[in-house]
Write a protein that binds this DNA or RNA. Structure first.
Lengths: 157, 157
DNA sequence: GCTAGCTTGTTAACCACGTAAACAATTATC
DNA sequence: GATAATTGTTTACGTGGTTAACAAGCTAGC
């Protein structure tokens, strides 16, 4: 097998992937994800929401009275991991744990008025920073990218 | 503002994003990244390479005598974080730290024969599992996705 | 030459995010 | 009514990264 030793200078100007890594989906996903996660933190600033807290709040606002188990399932994380997230949101008075009549195991999660307002503000900031990051993309490219990313999830075993 | 409360059932069958999260690039990136990372671990099995170790080995094999600082820069991580990765590779006798004549601060990283062989095996396994994950994608879709992900990195500030 | 500043690799302490295992309380199943 | 399953929770742990400090070595300016 011929093993090429190329220069690392300006590797990403090339059209074809220079190294093996550039041809791997996992690597490209991770690099892009890290960039977007850093943008997210910049957008929400010091003591803003962590990404996972934002995601949880988003679902609670859009699907009020969702239970913790269902929320964990939708987010793709463990129930145990969700506890700290909901603790955080409840400590900020943005979300309330409510008992559900008929099943005393369950806690329904409902946003407070402040929670809805905070979510709307944060969502606008995140959408704005994503738009800035994608400023060199056409609308069609943005939609294609998003659709292909969702397609990866579609085959989830 | 009209706030819709939709059902969570089968949300991902819809064409248009049902919730706000589905319309956010960061969320879709993270979900896809987690899937590929889990695939990666399945592909390499117990005590296989961690993703970051694999990435480092890949670059060391393809660019032998790269220095630790340059490797960290290419990978987008801190020098301090690379130490444990190289320690790991060196403990497995897959990579060797070599002194560089003319600059006694620097350690050049070179793969051993075992390192090259282990990398080739691992790379084949990773490529195979990615191909399986993308089995419902056309070739054109795969290339488009990869190109768009790289384009996100192209605007790195 | 010499000093002041930079780079390299390293350690240590820490943080974010997640999992796995165990558990009490409650509900469902048969 | 016994057994099993589900819900939320705590605790311990693992992974993948960061920042700050440091010693050693190199470089630039005078």
């Amino acid at each position: 097998m011929a093993r090429r030793q190329a220069s690392l200078q300006r590797a990403q100007d090339d059209d074809a992937p220079v190294g093996d890594l550039e041809g791997l989906l996992g690597y490209n996903l991770k690099r892009a994800y890290v960039i977007l996660r850093n943008d997210f933190r910049d957008a929400l600033g010091e003591d803003g929401f962590a990404p996972r807290v934002f995601s949880a709040l988003s679902l609670i606002v859009q699907y009020p009275d969702i239970t913790q188990s269902e929320l964990a399932r939708v987010l793709g994380i463990e129930r145990s991991g969700l506890v700290a997230i909901v603790d955080d949101l409840e400590a900020r008075r943005l979300v309330q744990r409510k008992p559900v009549p008929g099943d005393r195991r369950v806690q329904a999660l409902a946003p407070t008025a402040a929670g809805i307002a905070a979510y709307d503000t944060a969502r606008a900031a995140v959408q704005a920073h994503e738009a800035a990051r994608l400023s060199n993309f056409t609308k069609a490219e943005q939609e294609t990218l998003m659709q292909l990313l969702r397609k990866i999830r579609a085959v989830e075993d």
